[in-house]
Design a protein around this nucleic acid. Structure first.
Lengths: 191, 191
DNA sequence: TATAATATATTATGATCATCATATTATAAA
DNA sequence: TTTATAATATGATGATCATAATATATTATA
């Protein structure tokens, strides 16, 4: 006789909450700066239960990356679908390089947020990152109606502009970095 | 009577060695992942002496960033001056987006290496980063003979391409990201 | 060679981390 | 209501960190 305490699907829901908490914290503060206790607190739990859900922190990093990028692609798709007149890619570029996206790292695209750190992660994490990045480039290329070569250069410009705009300590310079990125990303998409 | 133990300028030399060790380690492994003891070992010292040279780790981060970016600009200047025929900017783009630069993070440009992490550093570090980035954009713009708006978009493309090329776990995709970045960065510089 | 001042090493402190062992709580079914 | 057990919490472990206090080593000059 098998008894099932706690409602059906309870553990999966909690697990998802942990992944969401981690995805937000990693984007806000990087991977190394965020502790397991902090992530668990963000999910409304204490640190001890973590290892009932994940083998180790690295596994959570991989899941959080997958979750965050999928989420961002879905959001950008929604942003693109809202606009009917302009080239849709322009709407996406405008959103990606908006002050709002720059200033709300914890809710935004995880690629510029973690960027440099990913190259130092485990193979498992990099594998997830690679396949999700391919999906992102594919999405951008399709939307801009360009081949994936131009699409990847376009996305590189978007990522680079956002990263630089976030790193400087001078709001006017930061705005200019965003504006320049927007202008030339759109040019690239059109030619 | 003032006696001067240790050769004149000894401490400054040691201090510079610490900065160099830090600049290399930070580029290779990020800021948070690199400990003060590790940096001191890299300079041939033990950790205790650190606070005779710096108030805290953050101060070293600022100095290491300044050192690394200046060093990179000087290197790119040398790379540009070697080539007499092609547009010099193309030589710099080719170097910046070469597999060599991608694969030797610890010797390369610190901007893509730390990228996301800088936005979470102290004001002091971000101030250094801001002024050094301005110098970099100015250098690139002058070399490409474009205004700083286009120059910053150009550098953003270079940084973004390198960051993405380093983060993926698939060498062909990584090479393609570099190639696409090179192609469209050069196009941007020429139009 | 002895000395005085400086540079570096050794050791200590208190905090935080990932991870694990064990205790407690919550709840579906009997 | 009781019971069995899954889910979570508490507390512990050993490692590593930034930083500081103190001890030792180094060397230019007297």
């Amino acid at each position: 006789m098998i008894t099932i305490p706690y409602p059906k699907g309870h553990k999966i829901k909690v697990r998802n909450k942990i992944v969401e908490s981690a995805a937000q914290a990693f984007r806000a503060s990087g991977i190394q700066d965020v502790s397991v206790p902090f992530i668990m607190k963000g999910a409304g739990l204490t640190h001890g239960g973590f290892y009932a859900h994940f083998d180790n922190k690295e596994q959570l990093v991989a899941e959080a990356c997958r979750y965050a990028i999928s989420d961002t692609i879905a959001l950008l798709r929604k942003v693109a679908d809202q606009e009917k007149q302009n080239p849709k890619i322009n709407t996406v570029i405008d959103y990606y390089l908006s002050p709002y996206h720059r200033d709300n790292t914890e809710m935004g695209c995880i690629i510029p947020a973690l960027s440099g750190e990913i190259s130092r992660c485990s193979e498992e994490v990099r594998q997830v990152f690679t396949s999700e990045l391919e999906r992102m480039v594919s999405f951008i290329s399709t939307l801009a109606e360009v081949d994936t070569s131009k699409g990847s250069a376009l996305f590189s410009t978007m990522v680079g502009s956002l990263v630089l705009a976030r790193s400087v300590n001078h709001s006017e310079l930061s705005d200019n970095l965003l504006s320049a990125g927007k202008k030339y990303a759109k040019e690239l998409a059109m030619t």
